[in-house]
């Protein structure tokens, strides 16, 4: 039977009440490459994102657009459809992979036919029910979209959703490298800094940013892109799972152990939230006890699974 999996153990406490109802809707849009090498790069990134997305949500909640299907009309209809299906607890994640342009006033994501504008994207995000939705735009000049949606400088607001752009503003017009590194992060253990086997938005962003810096450093060139992240909760929003994390099993013994471990992980997170309320020695002592129990449970789960295996 299929095992159910958690999006991210680190946000277990916060998400637990709505787990059974909450759904994640993922939309991946591959824009026009213009040249074969960009077409190839964008396709590769889109495919990586698609694969990673399957570790996070049901296949019917993943929508991918490229070529002629990625028209403005299709996309607006798609977003209207999922908006209608979503409830307050559901979340949406949008990946825009491609080129962008900015004429000084309007940002556009380049797709066949009329482009998607910054206003279109803002409307899409604002129409989603609930909050904490996510949009990553890996295109050149995508910083202009960010400024358009959340404002500039001191006037920038803290949005109810999480937005990532590959560039600082609309003046960074060179084709970007951020997108392919962001896609790489979704399947790369090096991105998983808290070792919880999932990659959060924050981890993917940090990985891609570091990779872009290294890329330009090694090439001996000044960086022409500076990615931005806005909004709260990027560390809690998981984008991919690096390995299966079971939370249910047909084997009642394993199932019981899994539930115990989930509860322990929740306790650890709760302890970490309360660390300022106790001495460091007390905190470490309690953490050690909880982690030890979690480790023992993991070992017992593995042993049970080993003995159950044919």
């Amino acid at each position: 039977m299929a095992n159910r999996t958690l999006p991210s153990l680190c946000c277990f406490v916060a998400l637990l009440p709505s787990l059974s109802q909450a759904a994640l809707y993922i939309t991946i849009v591959q824009g026009l490459g213009g040249q074969p090498e960009y077409d190839s790069e964008f396709t590769e990134s889109r495919e990586k994102i698609e694969a990673a997305s399957h570790s996070m949500t049901a296949a019917e909640n993943i929508s991918s657009f490229n070529g002629e299907s990625a028209s403005r009309e299709n996309l607006l209809k798609h977003f209207a459809d999922i908006t209608a299906r979503m409830n307050e607890d559901d979340r949406a994640a949008i990946y825009l992979v491609g080129h962008g342009s900015f004429d000084g006033e309007t940002y556009k994501f380049n797709i066949p036919g009329p482009d998607l504008s910054d206003t279109d994207l803002k409307n899409i995000l604002e129409n989603f029910p609930g909050q904490n939705h996510f949009l990553v735009n890996t295109s050149s000049t995508s910083g202009a979209m960010l400024e358009s949606i959340v404002g500039e400088g001191e006037e920038a607001s803290n949005p109810d959703y999480i937005i990532v752009s590959a560039t600082r503003n609309g003046n960074e017009r060179n084709s970007t490298h951020f997108g392919r590194f962001f896609a790489d992060a979704l399947t790369n253990e090096e991105a998983d800094l808290n070792k919880n086997s999932t990659v959060s938005i924050e981890e993917a962003f940090d990985f891609a940013t570091r990779s872009v810096e290294s890329y330009f450093e090694e090439a001996g060139r000044l960086s022409t892109e500076h990615a931005q992240l806005r909004g709260d909760g990027a560390a809690q929003f998981s984008l991919s799972r690096l390995s299966e994390i079971q939370i249910e099993s047909e084997n009642p013994v394993i199932n019981d152990l899994l539930q115990q471990r989930l509860a322990l992980d929740a306790e650890i997170e709760n302890l970490q939230l309360r660390r300022n309320q106790m001495s460091n020695a007390e905190y470490i002592q309690q953490l050690q006890a909880l982690v030890l129990r979690s480790a023992e449970l993991s070992e017992r789960i593995e042993n049970q699974q080993g003995s159950a295996a044919p």
Binding site: N194, A295, S298
Partner: peptide
């Protein structure tokens, strides 16, 4: 050993290699 092991686990409580060492 314990000081740095617990620091690792404080940063990443589900870090399997560190958990195994603690165990």
């Amino acid at each position: 050993t314990m000081e740095y092991l617990m620091t690792a686990l404080d940063i990443a409580p589900q870090y399997r290699d560190a958990q195994m060492m603690l165990l």
